[in-house]
């Protein structure tokens, strides 16, 4: 798949995960690779882009006694962007699905 296109969709997926709860990078990477076949390292550039766009923020937290982990959290702007992008994507996906399933229409 076109990487640029995939990147946009992956951003949406990352925001969807962060909407549920704050996560550290590795968690997101693990979660995504369960569903989507991507290189594990791809998540980090996405997180960085989201951060530079102001859609997520980071904070350090030392839970479970280990080294401090960098948590990612969705900002208010991020939430707004996510809701808008999600709506747009779903309607787009629906249209494409309908279009692709209609490909045999003329043959009948």
């Amino acid at each position: 798949m076109n990487t640029q296109y995939k990147k946009g969709v992956l951003e949406l997926c990352v925001m969807s995960i962060l909407k549920r709860r704050d996560c550290y990078g590795y968690e997101i990477s693990e979660y995504l690779s369960k569903y989507i076949d991507i290189a594990d390292g791809t998540v980090y550039p996405i997180l960085r882009k989201l951060k530079s766009d102001g859609l997520v923020t980071t904070y350090l937290s030392e839970d479970s006694g280990g080294p401090p982990r960098k948590y990612y959290s969705l900002t208010a702007l991020g939430l707004k962007t996510y809701e808008a992008d999600k709506k747009e994507y779903l309607s787009f996906a629906k249209t494409i699905e309908a279009l692709l399933e209609d490909e045999d229409y003329d043959k009948e």
Binding site: Y24, G25, Y26, S29, S33, A39, D40, G41, T42, Y44, L47, R69, K70
Partner: peptide, 24 residues
């Protein structure tokens, strides 16, 4: 971030080669 990724994966028992390959 990538170092941490290695740390987590190593703790799960993967080898460095495997982890690096999966990272891309």
């Amino acid at each position: 971030e990538y170092e941490q990724h290695f740390a987590f994966k190593l703790a799960d028992g993967y080898s460095e080669e495997e982890i690096a390959a999966k990272l891309g």
